[in-house]
């Protein structure tokens, strides 16, 4: 196992994060604040409690998930797309590095960054609203699991995309709608039966529901199902990544 290579990639990627630290922190802090001003203060004050939790507190897990998903995907997709774009990928391909080591370096760094941003979002939310975390270890576990899963997904997008437009396409057209419709700002119980059934096809529902359970001990979907679905999505991403390296798809001629 080439641990040094994993380290090298991880450090290299984290240095990239370091260079853009200000915008990395400012962006989630700003957007979280905006969400709280609009949904928490303006709209939330007219909302009743959901499952015994104030609306402001209710949306916290959803907002963190929103930041986590978008950041994981964009960090990881950009991390692997950029060397492909500039051509420096030659060095990764010609190095004595196995595919799992390569993925560990890139996905590890992307997940680390998005977890940091998730925690910053959490801290920002705390400034606006009071909330409790019933199961902090589970909360961290869900944070980690989601960050890794969606960083893997981002890695796949970064390999699939052959231009900057495509790099933005899936996050914009698929992930953002899924997150917004995945119960970030509402409980799926609030939907009519038909739409509730439709919503259950959305994988993000399970992530947000599970994550919200770790905060308030209550959830839309059974926690075991949430966990199972997240692990299923993780395995699906792992399967795609291993297929990519097996076939050399978009990496090797």
């Amino acid at each position: 196992m080439n641990i040094r290579a994993i380290q090298a990639i991880y450090i290299f990627e984290m240095a990239r994060t370091g260079r853009t630290l200000l915008q990395s922190i400012v962006s989630p802090v700003l957007s979280t604040s905006l969400y709280f001003i609009v949904f928490g203060a303006a709209i939330g004050s007219h909302m009743t409690q959901i499952g015994g939790v104030s609306y402001g507190a209710f949306i916290v897990p959803g907002l963190i998930m929103l930041a986590l998903l978008t950041q994981s995907i964009s960090n990881a997709s950009f991390g692997i797309f950029f060397p492909r774009f500039t051509g420096t990928i030659y060095e990764l391909l010609s190095a004595p590095v196995s595919p799992p080591e390569l993925v560990a370096g890139y996905v590890g760094a992307a997940a680390t960054k998005s977890i940091i941003l998730g925690l910053i979002t959490l801290a920002t939310a705390r400034l606006f609203v009071d909330f409790r975390i019933d199961h902090p270890l589970w909360m961290l576990f869900f944070l980690l699991l989601t960050a890794v899963t969606f960083s893997l997904f981002g890695f796949v997008i970064g390999i699939w995309a052959d231009n900057f437009e495509k790099l933005q396409l899936i996050p914009l057209l698929v992930v953002t709608p899924l997150t917004f419709l995945g119960g970030s700002f509402y409980s799926i119980d609030m939907l009519p039966p038909f739409w509730r059934a439709v919503t259950l096809v959305n994988p993000v529902v399970y992530l947000i529901s599970g994550f919200r359970w770790s905060f308030f001990g209550a959830s839309d979907v059974n926690i075991a199902i949430s966990l199972g679905m997240t692990l299923f999505f993780l395995s699906a991403c792992l399967a795609i990544v291993s297929w990519v390296f097996k076939t050399g798809y978009r990496l090797k001629a």
């Binding site: 040094r4 290579a5 090298a8 990639i9 240095a15 260079r19 051509g87 420096t88 190095a95």
Partner: peptide, 21 residues
């Protein structure tokens, strides 16, 4: 084909690490 934003030292050190040294 080179990185753009990294320093010379960082990119050369990265290469050595990548090769497991």
């Amino acid at each position: 084909t080179t990185d753009a934003f990294e320093t010379v030292w960082a990119t050369v050190t990265f290469s050595r690490g990548l090769f497991g040294k």
